[in-house]
Write a protein that binds this DNA or RNA. Structure first.
Lengths: 220, 220
DNA sequence: GATCGTCTCCCCCGTGCGGGGGAGGCCCGT
DNA sequence: ACGGGCCTCCCCCGCACGGGGGAGACGATC
């Protein structure tokens, strides 16, 4: 019997993407979609999915409350996979504390997404940051650069964007970064915006946090 | 024979403070002062200090260039102790790479300053962040809270300011912190300003960097 | 009782930041 | 020769941020 999945995300595009990725697997079946956490409980009662892939930030009822509501009201709650764009989203940790089984970044590759759903369905918990750090650890002490480069590929940061992120993580302002890279501040702003978008960060502080948490830059 | 020290800092107040602290020691003697790195070489030639306590940021010639110049032009260069307000100042690391023997935060307690000068004079190197991490390590894995509390005392952050810094390090905006702590945004702004001042950080990003680098918050 | 530190909130104000656009030059792969 | 990705720079714009003040309330300390 296949793994049944319910998609909950306010963006139709994301739902379509997840559906496409998951339905390509013979052992995974998408059994429903919801655009907001508010609609999830009756839908779960109705279709009884194994896994709910749930966005954190939603207009009416967010992923945290929806998770709590599911666990509170159902006798056999589904596994809950939190899907988010930003791994240091404060809501993510709250969702996990609320009882979610794992979380996954939207920028993850299709194979990773499929893998995550299968793991969750099997009862495994899944925390992406841990896997990222594991990735960094694979390259050992000396090869920090290679791990960083591998992370670059994940986040799909260009080389220049990686440089800018590194300088951001050293506390430099846009003007200082511009001076360092010998380009205009407008250029730096472009790169910074690109980095924020790709990391799902709201501001440079969150980007720096992501850099530390992912191992892209290391303390010391 | 006493340890002789030359003070190089563009702020007279800082020089006076260092002089007061150091001259109180019978075995330490301040043998000169300079207001900028540009004046340091002839002065060092003249007074031959054991230790140069040098600011990093100075108007004409900064601590990095002054350090390089000293090491390049003198056969028996003095020990160089970089004195700065902010431990994650980008220039600090460059100064250390340029050959400085250690660095010290201006917010350090008098006893620490004296200790640092003596250590440097004896040929020991001294890196404050390392000592902070060592401090954190002393408390072991389980006692992270105690280490954090010890760090709080060092930076003289109040309990509330520590809370605020922790939330800053999770990427929260002032408004979000205010909501979380159930206070007004103006209050949060006050705390944030206090944190920035005490850490010598220019903005919240630098404060978060300091939090990570010092071990106040840990990745993962 | 007076003082100090902390937490709380208020004002004004400048500006760096980030979003949302667009655009030209470059190299590379097709 | 053309498109696509990347780097570069430009515009406008709103806003959160941070600095610099001040002030009241509370508890601890002296």
């Amino acid at each position: 019997m296949p793994v049944t999945v319910l998609l909950v995300d306010d963006e139709p595009l994301v739902r379509a993407g997840l559906r496409a990725v998951l339905e390509a697997q013979p052992d995974i079946e998408v059994v429903g979609e919801a655009a907001d956490g508010a609609a999830v409980i009756p839908l779960v009662r109705q279709v009884r999915p194994d896994v709910v892939a749930m966005d954190v930030r939603m207009p009416l009822l967010d992923g945290i409350e929806a998770t709590r509501a599911l666990l509170r009201t159902l006798d056999e709650p589904p596994k809950i996979l939190v899907v988010t764009t930003f791994e240091n989203d404060e809501y993510v940790y709250e969702a996990l504390r609320a009882g979610a089984d794992g979380f996954l970044l939207k920028r993850a590759r299709p194979a990773e997404i499929v893998h995550a759903v299968r793991l969750i369905a099997e009862g495994e918990s899944l925390l992406f940051p841990a896997s990222v750090r594991q990735l960094a650890a694979e390259y050992g002490e000396g090869g920090g650069n290679r791990a960083a480069r591998a992370l670059l590929e994940r986040a799909r940061l260009t080389e220049r964007e990686g440089e800018v992120l590194r300088l951001m993580a050293r506390g430099l302002s846009n003007a200082e970064i511009a001076a360092r890279l010998v380009v205009g501040t407008e250029t730096v702003k472009s790169h910074v915006s690109a980095v924020l978008a790709k990391l799902g960060a709201r501001d440079r502080t969150q980007a720096v946090i992501a850099a530390y948490e992912s191992g892209f830059v290391a303390p010391g």
